[in-house]
Amino acid sequence: MPQNKSQHIAALADQCVQCGLCLPVCPTYALDGNEAESPRGRIAIAAALAKGLAPVTDEVREPLDHCLGCLSCERVCPAQVRFGELLMETRGLLGPAPQRPRVLLALARQPALLRLTRLVGLHRWHAGLARWLPLPSRWRTALALAASTSAPQLAPSLADAPRARTLARVALFPGCVASVEDAAAQQAAIALLEAVGHPVIRLPGLCCGALDAHGGDTQAAARAARRVRDAWQASGASVLVTVTPGCIGQLRNALPDARVDDPYALLAAQAEHLQFRPLPRRVALHLPCTQLNVARSGEALQALLGRVPTLEVMPLPARCCGAAGSHLLEFPERAAALRAPTLEAAGAVAPQALLSSNIGCRLHLAAGLAEQGSTVPTLHPLVLLAQQLATGQHS
C-alpha cells in the first residue's frame, strides 16, 4: 500500500476509542451479530491492513464490502471518527472486489438502456423471465429493479404561478440512473424552486461517481468528479441541488467549495410562499440514510409535507433498507433481509403510498412490495408536493 495512504487510514482509525456506541445503530451488526460486521470491527480491520498486520484476503475484506456506508455510526460517535472517509480510503487502496458485478453496474449507468426497458414494458413480462434465473441472483434482482414502476407521475405545470422574487440561481444535477427514473422528481424540483423564486438550470446527465467511489474504483470516480466540476463551472449557479441524496456526498467531494444540497432546505427556507391543496391520504415516509446522515434534510422534508392539508404522514423507523448504492446488486440476499423490517413497518401503517427520496431505495422497496403482491405505489416526495402545489398562489 502507498505509505501516505496507509498512514492516513491508520490515523483515522486511531481516533476510534472502541466505546461501542456505534454497535446499536449499525444495521449489518444487527443482521449478523458479528463484531467484524460492526463499525468498530471494520475500523480494526482497516487499521490492521494499513499497518501491514493483516493480509488482503477475501475473508478480511468481506466485512468492508458488506458495509452499507449508511454513516449512522458517525451520527453517534463521541470521538467524531470520520468513518465514511476511512471506509472510502480503505476500499480505494484495496480496489474493486473481484466479485463486483461490473457489467450490471455499467448497464445501470446507461440512461438510454433504462429508457428502453420502459418502452418495451419490462414490468409486464419480467416475471416470466425471472423464473429462469436462480433466487437469490444478481441478475434476477437487477431485472426486478428495472421492472419496478412508481405511481403515475404527472409533470407539474405551474405556468400560472407568479414569480415575485428572484433568489439565488440553482443548478440541478440529474445524475445517471436518476436522469431517467427521477425525471418527474426533477421536474417537480424545478417547479417548486421556481415557484419560490429560484431560477433553475438543468445540468447534463452525468454520473456523480458514487458507485465507483464506494466500490473502490478511485480512478473512475476521479474522472466522474472532473466532469461534474466542468459542468458546475459552466452553469454560473450559486447552489447545486440533486433530488437523489445518494449523490450528495460524492458531489460535495467533487465540489468542496460549493454549496451542494437537496432541494428541501431551499424550499423550507421559503415555505411561507408555498401553498398546497388538501390531500386526504395516508403516506408512509421512508427517510434514506443519505438524507438523514449526509444531507440531513429529514426535518425540512417533514416540515414541507406537514404543510399539505389533510395529508397524514407516517414516518418509518430510521433504518437502512439495504439498497446502499450497489449493495443490492452485489449482495441481493443480504439486501433483501435488511429491507424486510422497513416493508413490515410500512405494511403496519397501511399507507396509500410510500414516499422515498433516494432512487435506489425507492426501486428496492418497490421491488419488495411487488414480491409481496402489494399494490401500494412508491413515489418521490417532491412529486407529491408539486402535484399539490396551489397554482396561481401569491407569493
Rank of each mutant, 00 (worst) to 15 (best):
L384S: 09
C361F: 08
L154G: 12
H123E: 13
A268I: 00
L266E: 07
P332I: 03
A225M: 00
L365K: 11
L240G: 01
A348N: 07
A348M: 06
L193S: 11
G175A: 09
L211N: 08
S326E: 01
Q7K: 05
G347K: 02
P98L: 07
T378E: 04
T310Q: 14
E181I: 01
A13H: 03
A222H: 14
G197L: 12
V103S: 11
E333H: 08
A195Q: 08
C208N: 11
A210D: 07
A10V: 04
A146G: 14
E74S: 12
A222P: 09
T218P: 00
Q270N: 12
T242P: 02
S326M: 00
A189G: 02
I190H: 07
H8A: 10
A112N: 14
R100K: 11
H364R: 07
R100H: 14
P174R: 09
C207S: 04
P245K: 05
Q186C: 08
Q219R: 15
L116N: 04
H214F: 07
H273P: 02
F173C: 10
E74Q: 12
A323R: 00
D217L: 14
V243P: 08
A191M: 04
A97G: 13
Q270V: 10
P245C: 06
P96Y: 06
W132G: 13
P111H: 15
M1E: 00
Q7P: 00
G347Q: 07
G121F: 07
L107A: 15
A269F: 07
D32I: 01
F83V: 05
Q3G: 00
A185S: 12
R339Q: 09
E371F: 03
H380V: 11
L122E: 11
R140F: 05
A303V: 04
A171G: 11
T391P: 03
D65S: 05
F83W: 08
A79F: 06
V170M: 12
H214Y: 14
G41W: 01
H286S: 08
D32H: 13
P101F: 03
R259W: 05
P288K: 02
A213Y: 05
P332K: 06
A127K: 10
V241F: 02
L71Q: 12
Q99F: 07
E299F: 08
T166S: 14
Q15S: 09
Q3W: 03
G33Y: 05
A350K: 10
Q302L: 09
S6L: 00
L384W: 13
G322W: 13
I359L: 15
R109L: 13
S238K: 10
E35F: 08
